[in-house]
Design a protein around this nucleic acid. Sequence first.
DNA 1: GTAAGGATGCGCT
DNA 2: GCGCATCCTTACG
Length: 208
Amino acid sequence: MKLPYSFYQAPTLVVARALLGTLLVHTIEGKRLSGIIVETEAYVTPGDEACHAYRGITKRNSVMFGEPGHAYVYRSYGIHSMLNIVTEPRGIAAAVLIRALEPVEGKEEMQARRMASGRPIGPNLTNGPGRLCEALGIGAALNGESLCEGTLSIEEGRGVDGPIVQTTRIGITRSTELPWRFYLLGNRHVSVRHRAAERLLAESSRRL
DNA sequence: GTAAGGATGCGCT
DNA sequence: GCGCATCCTTACG
């Protein structure tokens, strides 16, 4: 079952957390390439200087201002595609960056797509926002596409059965103090672990 | 295991 | 021109 539009209309931090454990699916050339979402980051207006929409609407970021449940795909460092999911009602610019997946369907095809792009053979298939887009064949052509009606979608996954780590975002230079990254504790497909946050989480749960 | 540097295109100041 | 919401290779413990 695809997640409905109403799922994405919620506050961005709620959606970022709720996306963990769901299944991202890209159907391409008749094949389903999919993976469980294990790491996300929230980007919100107003007040978040790292959000692309911080300074208002532009040609690049306009999708973020539109309907929730659509894909915002842009190119980073001129090389990598980044997949975001638009959240909040129309007019509020916000999105969730998908940072890592646990491969489920089409793992061979993912490896083949990575190799075709000159990437090394190895375990780093979908543990990073650029890598997962390459593995699933997600590019700028999908910018603005609906996740409820197109070839790219998010389905109910296996859910979450363990702790979720909440910590600071990665690879940004502004608003670095905001704890808006979420990931599944102990999942080996997470791109970068934050040991201190994991330790705090363990201590707080022990106290209960 | 960590660190540094290059690749590479486009939006924005 | 400058600066990236990154990834890969190489060097060194």
